[in-house]
Design a protein around this nucleic acid. Structure first.
Lengths: 160, 160
DNA sequence: GTCTGTCTTCAGAAATTTCTGAACGTTCGC
DNA sequence: GCGAACGTTCAGAAATTTCTGAAGACAGAC
């Protein structure tokens, strides 16, 4: 029976690793993505940095840095761990909507840069183009919160 | 007067470069971002690879690769250039909505990876989490087109 | 058909990002 | 306090990405 269990564990690890690499391909730092996937795929209520080192086969140093990153992203949180010397972490409930919201943070920067362009360039085709771009990103920025809200309402709705 | 004009040209170039670096920070390849910014900020009806080499001060090789990339992204297009041996390019009208749509292409990959996770993991907290994540990204994927459509309608509306 | 200007490809160089391992703090149990 | 287990930081190494420059391919003018 251990063989069966072991096989399933390996399959889970594979799927986790695959998702991590996919997220890395989408722009996330590799080790941060692996840490995130570890939290996503575990049935444990919390994980410590040591757990992650064992699970991922990475150095304590890089795990430490990745945990810091993922926590700053707001995807995991510290959890009280009475009777243990280690720091325990777990995924936050709103992790995905948070992540999506954060992916739009760069839009602020882009918007500023475009606005600077609009202020700099004299009337002409280039200016028109910049204004169009600015309007589009402004529109996006305004729509994202309501998009997330709609998802959460839909989630909450069907199950009162 | 040339001084004044020259100063404005420099300011425009600065703003373009700043936007390019911002886009690069948001995940775009650097040279591709610089090429895109060049098209965005020019009042010329079209640019050639040679123009870009002169404007950006980069090698013909890297410009060639970047133009290829930006064209595959659907942001610029070839334009007929009778009487010229060079290839002329210009920005496409739908560039920004196209770019935004493409930024969501990785979501397909993530969705597949998550679905694989759901199929792999047995019932438990991890599975619940994966299902939630899958539902969220599925929701997003469905909403993006209507978001873009709404922007284009709003744009078209006020100006009949 | 040949020549010239233009673009593309590709191997190697440069720069950047990412990971590791060792030294240093910190906190808890005793 | 003292000792031991953990976590963090940082300098250097490794890997990856990105750019360049030279060689070659292609298209049109003559």
């Amino acid at each position: 029976m251990t063989g069966e269990t072991e096989r399933k564990r390996a399959a889970r690890k594979d799927a986790a690793e695959h998702l991590a690499l996919t997220l890395a391909g989408a722009g996330m730092q590799r080790m941060a993505a692996r840490v995130l996937a570890a939290f996503l795929f575990t049935d444990e209520p919390s994980l410590t940095a040591g757990d992650l080192v064992a699970e991922l086969g990475a150095s304590a140093g890089s795990v430490s840095g990745a945990v810091k990153t993922v926590m700053q992203m707001g995807l995991i949180e510290r959890v009280a761990a009475p009777g243990s010397r280690r720091e325990h972490y777990r995924m936050r409930d709103r992790a995905w909507t948070t992540l999506y919201g954060r992916q739009h943070a760069p839009i602020d920067d882009i918007l500023s840069a475009v606005a600077r362009g609009v202020a700099t360039v004299e009337p002409g085709p280039a200016r028109e183009r910049l204004i169009y771009m600015r309007d589009f990103y402004e529109f996006l920025l305004g729509e994202v919160p309501s998009l997330i809200e709609r998802f959460e309402q839909r989630r909450a709705g069907p199950r009162p």
